[in-house]
Nucleic acid binder design. Structure first.
Lengths: 126, 126
DNA sequence: TCGGAACATCGATGAACGTCAATACAGTGC
DNA sequence: GCACTGTATTGACGTTCATCGATGTTCCGA
């Protein structure tokens, strides 16, 4: 790997993905009609969770010590291939539910605090 | 009601009341790992909501008088064809979020009370 | 009885999705 | 340097999904 390689990959989306402060996209659905744009945003979040494998991954991570788990501990429980698990984890990360931190050769995925509550917020009536 | 009736009360009634008494499929995801079966059920519900058009339909119905709306009042706001709207409404009905009642040639869809809260329950940490 | 209106269903089509095998990449230890 | 291990990416394939036009079905009024 050469030095010039570093400048070739601009991660523009890193700015938009401030995963440290999850926010509800909109008010309660029962209060007033959701806008088309908000519906798009909210649907994208729900779609990231609307898969059995991803729900299990989030659940395993969330129920782990420090709400953090290694990929190597996730493959066997969900019963899927390693590339598929990695694929799902990426989707959950892009949606703002998980963050990744590499420690040595291992990758640890951590639940973003409050992200699940923020995703559920528009559904609850309270 | 005779005495013998007591022993013959069919449990089918409880199933029939399912639509009017929504129940969370599982405990909080953060408490303990969700089972494969519960993940399947929960994912199916989320998938029914994870679409911009369906979110808008639910929102319009939920924000209407008596949380009820006619199909004729739903087509124009979402900007989709009538068959497509009918298709989405069926999905929301099958998932237990809406109920339908025909009055004359009109069909009124009503939000099932508590169904949205029940769907969001596994996500909130409380 | 007939025509029209409101809604559901059918059939087709293009896009998105979940999955895996193969491969590439990045660290660790020798 | 080299081999090995853990993880991400790529390419391909079958399935599911959202959408629409055409057609059915049900109900009401003339």
């Amino acid at each position: 790997m050469t030095v010039t390689d570093l400048t070739l990959v601009p991660r523009v989306e890193a700015i938009a993905l401030d995963a440290s402060a999850p926010v509800a996209c909109c008010g309660p659905l029962t209060r007033e009609t959701i806008s088309a744009d908000d519906a798009e945003v909210f649907a994208r979040r729900l779609k990231a969770l609307a898969d059995p494998a991803r729900l299990r991954l989030v659940s395993i991570v969330a129920a782990s010590e420090g709400q953090e788990a290694c990929v190597c501990d996730l493959i066997e429980p969900v019963g899927l291939s390693q590339p598929t698990v990695s694929h799902h984890l990426k989707i959950l990360m892009d949606a703002g539910f998980l963050t990744r931190s590499k420690r040595g050769t291992w990758a640890y995925y951590k639940l973003v605090p409050g992200s699940l509550d923020a995703a559920a917020a528009p559904l609850v009536t309270v």
